[in-house]
Design a binder for these strands. Structure first.
Lengths: 152, 152
DNA sequence: TCCTAATAGCTAGGTTGCTAACTATTGCTT
DNA sequence: AAGCAATAGTTAGCAACCTAGCTATTAGGA
C-alpha cells in the first residue's frame, strides 16, 4: 500500500497475470529445451556453471546460489557434469566439508563458446526495445518480483 | 529490427537478463511450493484445472494447452488428481479417442475456494503499480515474450 | 471398400526442481 | 577437553517438466 492505488479491476488483473504467465512459459520453454547442439550444455547447466568462467574454483553451495537452486539439485547436476567431463570436483583442503568445483579445459572451452553466443543473441534481441523502454522494463520487472512473492 | 535501435551495451543486457531471471525464479518458486494447505492443490494443478471452473467437461488436450504443458505431463497429473478424488475421467462417447475430464463435487468446491483466494491476492498485490504502470507493464511483458523466444 | 494420414492419449525413460533425513567436518562454549 | 550447534554435501524419494515411440480411433481418399 505504498501508494494509495485503487485495486485493479478483474479484467486488468487477468491481463497482468496472463502477460506474466506468458513470460514465464517462454522462459520455461527455453530452459527445458535440450542441450545446445554445439556445446552440449543445457541452459540450467550453463546458468549453474557461469560463475566458473570468471573464478577458477567454487564450492557447490556457491554454484547452487548462482542458479537459484537447492543444494541437492546442484549436487546431482554437478555429478552428471563430472561424469560428462565438464567439471572436476575435489574436497577443499582448508575445509574438508566443502567440495570445490572447477571446469575442465574442455568444459571451459565449451562454456566460453556458449556464453559468447548467448550474449550476442541477447544484445541483438533486446534491440526490440528502445533505450527508454529498456530502462522502464528493468524497473518494472524488479518491482514485479515482490508482487509475485506476495501472491505466492 | 523493427526500429533501428542501437544495440544495448553489455551492462544493460546484464541488467535486463538479471531482472527477467529474477521474475522467472520468483514464479518458479511460487509453483514449486507445495500444495495449498487448505485445498490441497498445487499451483500447476490449479492452472491445469482452471478451465473446468467454467466448463463442466473438457478433454485432456484442452487442459494441457491451458497449462501450457505437454500431453504426457497433463495425463500424469490428471491420473494423480483422479486418484485424489479431484477429477473424474471417461472416454468421450462421440469420439472414443478423447478422454473427458470433469471435476468431482469436492474438486469443484476446492478449486473455487482456491481461485477466489488467489484472485483476491492478485488484485491486492497489483495495487503496488499505478494504473499507468500496469498498462505499461502489460505492454512490455507482451513484447518481452518474442524476445525471449528469439534468445532461446 | 480399403489404406493411409491425422488425431488423441498413454507408456517409458530422462532432466530439473523440491524437502527430509543423513554424514562429516568445523567451531563455539563451557 | 567434551560436547553441542552450525555448516557443507550427499542420498533418497517425490512432483512437474520434456521427447520418443506406441495404440486406438477417426477421417479422407484411391
Amino acid at each position: 500500500m505504498t501508494p494509495g492505488n485503487k485495486s485493479p479491476n478483474p479484467a486488468e488483473v487477468d491481463e497482468l497475470v496472463q502477460a506474466a504467465d506468458a513470460v514465464f512459459f517462454a522462459m520455461r520453454k527455453a530452459r527445458s529445451a535440450g542441450a545446445d547442439r554445439d556445446a552440449g550444455l543445457s541452459l540450467p547447466q550453463v546458468t549453474m556453471l557461469e560463475p566458473l568462467a570468471a573464478e577458477p574454483e567454487l564450492p557447490v553451495g556457491r554454484l547452487a546460489a548462482a542458479a537459484d537452486v537447492s543444494i541437492p539439485t546442484a549436487t546431482r547436476m554437478l555429478q552428471q557434469l563430472e561424469g560428462a567431463g565438464v567439471v572436476a570436483r575435489r574436497r577443499s583442503p582448508e575445509d574438508e566439508r566443502k567440495v570445490l568445483v572447477a571446469l575442465t579445459p574442455d568444459g571451459h572451452e565449451r562454456l566460453a563458446r556458449l556464453l559468447a553466443g548467448r550474449r550476442a543473441r541477447q544484445a541483438e534481441a533486446f534491440e526490440a526495445f528502445s533505450p527508454a523502454e529498456r530502462r522502464q522494463l528493468v524497473a518494472l520487472l524488479r518491482r514485479l518480483v515482490p508482487v509475485i512473492d506476495s501472491i505466492g
